[in-house]
Nucleic acid binder design. Structure first.
Length: 191
DNA sequence: TATGAGATCAACT
DNA sequence: GTTGATCTCATAC
């Protein structure tokens, strides 16, 4: 099961193609990480996206080249990790919402102060804390250390649903997840 | 199980 | 001054 490294070209496409293909991919930061099980797409036509109103100091990275990390502070305390994708008129990115811990479990538990594996990375803020992601990672390329990204070996079953935790355009079905995963931040509606 | 408040920073009105 | 792509802890059934 040799997985290919994801390079910049992977992200130089529409978020709506990139987002579902990220499900099942492996993300490591400094050797700590796991399998991506939940993401959300943010597009410039989307009032909930930071890029909707154009570039600002905070979201400048989103308007840069694809394949970079966009890290921002949420509610003053949490960090959230995004992958910048191709611009289609304006900036777009994929929010990494949850992953299944595979590598560096000990480090993650220490950083999170938790024993429960399922809650180590089941949410954007938790994930960043577990992987040690901070504003220092903002703008870093995803194909160079400390980041490591590997494509999934096989195409998993993708669940699709409504996004979480937002008040604008919350009805857009741009949340993607690994069907049946125990590590989702919230379960998908069964269909 | 379910609802509610607090934490705390930067962009926006 | 208010709001937000959140999480945790406390209190109430």
């Amino acid at each position: 099961m040799a997985s290919a490294r994801l390079h910049r070209a992977f992200f130089a496409r529409s978020v709506h193609r990139v987002a579902p293909e990220l499900i099942g991919a492996i993300l490591l930061v400094d050797g700590v990480g796991g399998r991506i099980v939940e993401v959300e797409a943010y597009h410039h036509t989307d009032p909930a996206a930071h890029s909707f109103r154009g570039p600002t100091e905070r979201n400048a990275v989103m308007f840069g080249p694809p394949g970079h990390a966009y890290v921002y502070r949420s509610y003053g305390i949490h960090w959230c990790l995004n992958f910048v994708c191709e611009r289609e008129g304006s900036a777009s990115a994929v929010l990494i919402r949850a992953l299944e811990p595979l590598e560096g479990l000990t480090k993650m538990r220490r950083r999170r102060g938790l024993a429960d594996e399922r809650q180590l990375c089941s949410g954007p803020g938790r994930l960043c804390q577990a992987l040690g992601i901070t504003g220092a990672h903002n703008g870093l390329p995803l194909d160079r250390p400390p980041f490591e990204l590997f494509a999934r070996a096989e195409k998993p079953e993708i669940a699709k649903g409504v996004r979480i935790g937002i008040t604008k355009a919350a009805e857009l079905p741009w949340r993607y997840g690994l069907k049946g995963s125990k590590f989702l931040s919230k379960p998908f509606k069964a269909d």
